[in-house]
Write a protein that binds this DNA or RNA. Sequence first.
DNA 1: ATGGTGAGTGCAGTGTTCTC
DNA 2: GAGAACACTGCACTCACCAT
Length: 572
Amino acid sequence: MPKKHVVEASSSQEIVSGQRSPSKKRKHKEVVSSTELDTTFSQDDEITFKPSQTEINDTQWTEADKEIHIWTVKHINQLMNNMEEAIMKLDDGTRTCTGLEKAINWDEVKFGRFSVYECKMMWHRIQKKVKRHRTVSEFYNAAKQVLDQDPKFFIRNQKRYTAEELYVEKKLDDFIEANPETPMQQAIEELKVKYENLSDKRKAKYEEKSTAVKKKITKSSSNKCPKPPQPVDFYIESKLPSVMEKKPELSEFQAINYCRHKYKKLKESKQIKYINKCIDHFPSYQEEVIEYLSENPEKEVKMASNYINKNEMATKWKHDGIPHKPPGTGYSIFAQNIMKDEEFTQNNPVTEYFKIISERWKEVPLEEKQKYNEESHKLKEAYKTEMKEKLLSLPEEERELLTKTVNLPTLESLEPSTKKKKTKLITDFWKPKLKEDILPATFPGEPKHKIVNSYAHFVQEHIPTLSGHRGSDKLKILGERWRQMAEEEKVKYLEKAKECEAQYQEELAKFKESLSKKDLARYEEIVKNRSKKKSSKSKTNSTITSNKKADVHEEADGASEVENGTGDEDSD
DNA sequence: ATGGTGAGTGCAGTGTTCTC
DNA sequence: GAGAACACTGCACTCACCAT
């Protein structure tokens, strides 16, 4: 499994912005005036030169570059010395000029007031001049040397498209060697006939190569950003030749579709092979995109972050030992059990499944339902434990990726207490993460507001005695009792309320004292926000109530209209 | 707006298999 | 991934009541 699965879009953006756009180059070209770059003589009386317009165009000039464009013989010698050192570090005898230029550390080469770009430019000029200076025999010897090392070097870029051409290319050298008298054109014709007489199996081999070449050419010519292949593509790649051989009646397109269909029906254990191939290929895809971006700096491309889909990812994790999520509820288990029955699924239309299941579920006795629910609970707990163990065994980075991509539970959600803790540690308080975290409802450690209402105290004390009544009835009864209560008796609750208020104020003052200036400001902000929310809520509530009332009126009006025969429908 | 609480409601999300 | 039909869960919220 590749360590880095996801490449952030921002990094690819950097690649884009890291390139100098062609327009910028043109700007520089315009700025460099001919008078500035005139050939001059230095104090050393040595001949200097100005870069040609083409050289300026080829180079990425900065404002600073323009000022230091005069090279003397001394400078050239210095550059040569620096280049020698740099080349000695890298050159293993096989590097080409282009390859060397890419690998070289130009920061070590640059010197004095000459920038990297200017040094590069001068090195280009030196190479160009040396090439022109070469004699024909030197050139011939160099070419011969290349040919000895790689006989196909000078023809490698010729693209051959068809399977037949690929066959001819492969066999031509041997054929000519064996038949030195045969003219080239005739040799090609004879090889073409030979190809025609090949077995289908051997032909398929060349067809496969041809498809790959065509694919490569179309890819480069269409200049589209590479896309990550899917597991099914790897399956097609490996199976297509044999499918086409076994089913000659199918066109290539049909054969591909046939492969797709086959892949869908493949067991998960077999799909894993192709999913893994896909994952292994992802770094190559990233490289392709980076290369594409460097060639097309003007394009804004977002690199795919998911190279396999959710299901495939789940298959992969499942295969790697991630426990499979159990069915949700007792009813789900019941439904699942019925669905397992092939007779049931074959004899009923899909849309009827759950109608039938729900009917059967209704007939299940309560005790049995309870059993299903217990089983569900057991499975859930077992899953939680297993999942927790598995997640803990993974490195943190991988765990995060896993929970993000497959929507697997987080470690927190697997904790035994299912209810979320509402109070936060004061140390965690300043960590802004989620929107709701920015302004929570309460401040950690804040004293709870005490009951300042005498009636509320009365309710609090007496409501437990009315356990047999409905919630709404309880307050009805207590309201009645409160009204009948003597004023002297009420004083008790009034004093309690006052006491509570005083206690609350005291606790609040202590709490505020314990806070730092920053925390206090934060707390006050929360209190302010709380009262704002409440007032807006009460406003919306009153609007809803008034709207409801209006609705009721409208409904009543509408009903009366219908009754009176004035509604639109009735009038027709 | 506040205290209390249970019942009820609405919504989002989960699960099942299969097709398009 | 949506949609087909259904059950279920969990959460947030409302409602009922009253006096201060």
